[in-house]
Design a protein around this nucleic acid. Structure first.
Lengths: 339, 339
DNA sequence: AACCTTAACTCTAACGTTTTCGTGTTGAAA
DNA sequence: TTTCAACACGAAAACGTTAGAGTTAAGGTT
């Protein structure tokens, strides 16, 4: 029934000053043992807990990390969040999550809002629309105001801050190399449009693998998809009549859709066509055939990002050198490739 | 380069008082047009934005909603979050997410921490461990301190607050009824242990459907699983040698595992055995055969919960009547049941 | 007796806002 | 010339907390 109790109320009740109460609870040597015990007992009885907002105002730090991501209904992002959350909690930080829904405007709004006192720093993956517009003033602004920012996954070279990425290019390279080692010669690529940084990088890895193995890059075998919504039909159309022996897809959904389309077109996976996707989600494991993928280790990524941010928050010196951590991917081979 | 600017700094710079600056920015009629314009121009130039923390302290409200859920890497919960976030943002609220990881202690910690000024109210789904322990003192306490709480999905009857649930029992009933209408007579149930409220309710729906159709409830056809981790083997073992023509599973994962197990055991889905799951996730749509499921409408659930909470936060009167909103499920029929 | 210590407090300022209540200046009515 | 609004602004309190700088009284030292 009782509302939250404050120092002032305790002070009044015990007929001492607010500072005495505060110091008692901090076990200050300035206060007599008697008084301290009395105050502590009373505080415990009324379940006193200091008000975070007041503390934040006083200390000018909130012990809160802002996460801004494009989308929450997305397995990879949730694993990253889990990683961040784990580390943050360990270090006494809270986490506040905002979604940009891939909208530039909402990203700006979120960032501005959280920057006004709500958080000490940010961990973010930028919205697709932002990457398209190439407008990063909002991010640069919070950084220039002294807020540390750590970017992950979709990072912006132009913005100077700590970053955590996976070796997209190398991960793609390895996957395609694996396919080549299986004697695949006609490997199709299903990617996203180029302004999405990861799509671009994975495409580069695909191409590099081909060229280093003296295989020709055939643009007819490359599909770039704008929106995930109608990917299924597009993929089917793309694969129709194509003479291929493997597919490399830059995400899980595209890989699944590719298998479905291939099956529809009368080709068997993995007997006729081997398929490798990117990102190890729930679907990959469950699917029949289970999907071979490039695992991104989202949780590690989140953990690393959180460490970087907290380190910066807690270091006294305003370190000016920023680092980009590149995390390795690992290739998980399951049933969607021939043995 | 400039740190965030405050009213005080603007005041000093323009040689007026802090109150004049504050009033100017609020376009108060007390201040001359000249001064107001000067202040506004200056504020705009330096990109002044009021400090949220200071505002929160002053207004004694944070315009922030706390979400506490057991797990983030979970499709259903993320859809709920998306629903909450959408409504919250519309109404000018922010969202802060904490994970209990299904641990009672962490749930308590999160709740206590957020209750000390960080949020105006909570939307939560309780941890499995909490349901097991049946210890709800932490939730009752924040409520008694005047913090509105809205529970969803896993709700506690014993705690008096607003709730949003789906008609678990009825959803299960409909699914099983559908199977019965297909002439299935030997329907297995794969559920969770009973202390998880939704598992219990869905089991009840299953049983009711059987009895209303004069079918016997055979406990040998019911499997209750404790942890999801090793569900695959357990389900396979359970199904081995069982003479059944349908399976109803209380979640997506169990349904998928059931199909895999059945396939392994030489039975065809849907020709020999029809399968219906619960919760419409990514896997359901992608799986082959695509899964028939009871759709929970997570986003609606989140939206409703957010509406309930915000309404309570913004109503002056301390309304004492709490409501439980029951959302309908809908049965999505795909390829995992025979036609 | 005059001074110094020390224990045990209390006061005050500060964090950044908002808002109520003053207060001094002007111009005009009486 | 006095009186009184109207105007334009400033001072101060408040939200809850902390920390450094006083303050007071008791006791001890010279």
């Amino acid at each position: 029934m009782p509302r939250k109790i404050t120092l002032k109320q305790i002070a009044k009740e015990l007929d001492v000053s607010v500072s005495t109460v505060s110091k008692s609870l901090k076990d200050s040597s300035e206060i007599s043992v008697d008084t301290k015990e009395k105050v502590k007992a009373f505080a415990k009885l009324y379940n006193y807990k200091p008000n975070n907002i007041a503390l934040s105002l006083k200390n000018r730090k909130t012990k809160t990390i802002g996460i801004i991501i494009p989308e929450i209904v997305h397995h990879f992002f949730t694993t990253v969040i889990r990683g961040i959350e784990h580390v943050a909690n360990e270090k006494g930080y809270n986490v506040i999550i905002c979604l940009s829904n891939n909208s530039f405007d909402k990203e700006v709004l979120n960032l501005e809002f959280l920057a006004n006192g709500s958080t000490d720093g940010f961990i973010m993956s930028v919205a697709k629309e932002t990457q398209q517009k190439e407008d990063y003033h909002h991010i640069k602004e919070v950084i220039s105001q002294g807020m540390p920012v750590v970017m992950f996954d979709r990072v912006i070279d132009e913005v100077i801050c700590d970053k955590v990425v996976i070796s997209d290019k190398h991960g793609a390279f390895e996957a395609v190399q694996y396919l080549i080692d299986l004697q695949c010669k006609k490997i199709a690529l299903i990617s996203t449009v180029d302004y999405v940084s990861v799509g671009k990088l994975r495409t580069a890895g695909y191409k590099e693998a081909l060229t280093t193995n003296d295989l020709e890059v055939n643009e007819d075998l490359i599909l770039k998809i704008e929106d995930v919504e109608h990917s299924e039909e597009k993929i089917e159309e793309f694969l129709k009549g194509k003479d291929i022996d493997a597919v490399f897809a830059v995400n899980e959904q595209f890989a699944v859709n590719a298998i479905k389309a291939l099956t529809k077109l009368g080709k068997k996976v993995p007997e006729d066509v081997s398929v490798i996707g990117f990102t190890d989600g729930v679907v990959s494991k469950s699917f029949i055939p289970s999907l071979s993928t490039v695992n991104q280790h989202g949780e590690d990524m989140g953990a690393k990002a959180a460490h970087l941010l907290i380190e910066r928050l807690e270091s006294e010196t305003e370190e000016q050198s920023f680092q980009t951590t590149v995390l390795d991917t690992s290739l998980i081979i399951r049933d969607s490739v021939k043995k």
